[in-house]
């Protein structure tokens, strides 16, 4: 008997999409992914790029993580800040970082920012915006410093300074009023810190501390908790429970080992 072999069709399988819509109508809503309110920024300066991010991760109105890391490694000379769906930004940057590493091993050359950008946008476009990843991509390669923003649908922007996330409006106000071309390294770091702080204080989705990454020719530095603008307020009282707070209802002792003879253990 001749059996026909079904050749698998390429592309996506949307079978469950219609089913999920019906389930939603009947009141079974889908589990919600963690979408983080965020402030992430980036700026070019004289000979490099500075990236910045806040460290608050929210689930609805609850702070899920007070100190999360939003600056993702892509290559030794390229980093990307992520806003939007936490799982998507984490996974996409990891996948692209892996692709870039293999590419470096195959070619023996330093990764280019444009390569990372292309990998990210082609992947995001394929998913038509269903991956909620908004990124600020920065790095320094053979062509010099580069700064891009990437939207969840896969469109890109190439600008000297940019912000993303729910705190982007607060952050951009700092850049629009204080940004200058060809800033020194320290000036650029200071400006990025101010922009993130504007997000931290004026956007409820952003908070805690400021993370910064500085990328220059042949050198990248990531500073976790570069500034903690609002220290934790100390408690007035102590809430340690007194020994004996937990009531003992019953006790029972059993000897698992019966010691019959022997010398005392040498513990000198």
């Amino acid at each position: 008997m001749v059996s026909r072999v079904d050749v698998p069709k390429g592309g996506f399988n949307f079978d469950n999409y219609q089913r999920n819509l019906i389930l939603q109508e009947k009141g079974f809503s889908l589990p919600k992914p963690t979408k983080t309110g965020t402030t992430i920024v980036g700026t070019k300066f004289k000979n490099g790029v500075v990236l910045g991010a806040d460290t608050r991760a929210t689930g609805d109105t609850t702070v899920m993580d007070k100190n999360c890391f939003k600056i993702h490694y892509l290559a030794p000379n390229i980093y990307g800040c992520g806003a939007g769906t936490a799982a998507d930004t984490d996974k996409i940057t990891k996948m692209v970082a892996s692709q870039l590493e293999l590419h470096r091993l195959a070619t023996g050359r330093e990764s280019r920012v444009a390569t990372a950008l292309t990998a990210l946008t082609q992947f995001l476009f394929r998913y038509q915006g269903h991956l909620g990843a908004a990124l600020v991509l920065g790095g320094v390669d053979v062509d010099g410093p580069h700064l891009f923003s990437v939207s969840p649908h896969g469109s890109t922007d190439k600008l000297p300074y940019l912000c993303q996330g729910s705190g982007s409006l607060a952050a951009i106000s700092i850049f629009e009023s204080q940004w200058r071309e060809n800033m020194e390294r320290d000036e650029a770091i200071e400006l990025v810190k101010e922009a993130i702080k504007a997000g931290i204080f004026n956007d409820m989705g952003s908070g805690s501390s400021v993370d910064v990454a500085v990328i220059e020719k042949g050198r990248a530095e990531v500073c976790r908790g570069m500034e903690v603008p609002y220290p934790t307020i100390q408690k007035v009282d102590s809430y340690k429970f007194k020994p004996g707070t937990t009531a003992i209802l019953s006790e029972s002792f059993r000897n698992f080992v019966t010691i019959t003879e022997g010398d005392a253990m040498d513990i000198s």
Partner: peptide, 17 residues
Amino acid sequence: KAVMRDSFTSATERDIQ
């Protein structure tokens, strides 16, 4: 008063509103 103050400093850590 101490319990009240500490309640709110803690709630502020986790509730964004």
